[in-house]
Amino acid sequence: MNSGASSVRTQVLLWGAQRVSAALLALCVVVHLITIIYAVRNGLSAAEILGRTRGSFAWGAFYALFVAAVAVHAPIGMRNIFAEMGLRGRGVDMLLVVLAVLLALWGLRAVWAVVG
């Protein structure tokens, strides 16, 4: 059923991408929350956070994955919400591609700030 500018295959792959990104987010959020709870046991300071993350390839890769999952998941979810509000089509899709790029850039900038 083609109900917009995108092809049926694209719509199905978007659905698949949202499911995969949701699974990644579930994992990332759990790891992130456990880290927060563990890290604040002795009080929270910027120095302690930076001490853990700066120069760490593992933390950099983890948060880059987290950001990628958000950048994929959020715009597809927004697309579904807009569609049910009656807003669909190429214009909305383009706007959401821009949102995806912005989310990725903002997120990766934040990752670079604590890792680089």
Binding site: M1, N2, S3, G4, S6, V8, R9, Q11, V12, W15
Partner: peptide, 11 residues
């Protein structure tokens, strides 16, 4: 499958 796929179908 093509008929039931996508935004107005099963997804």
């Amino acid at each position: 499958l093509a008929a039931v796929a996508g935004d107005a179908g099963c997804h």
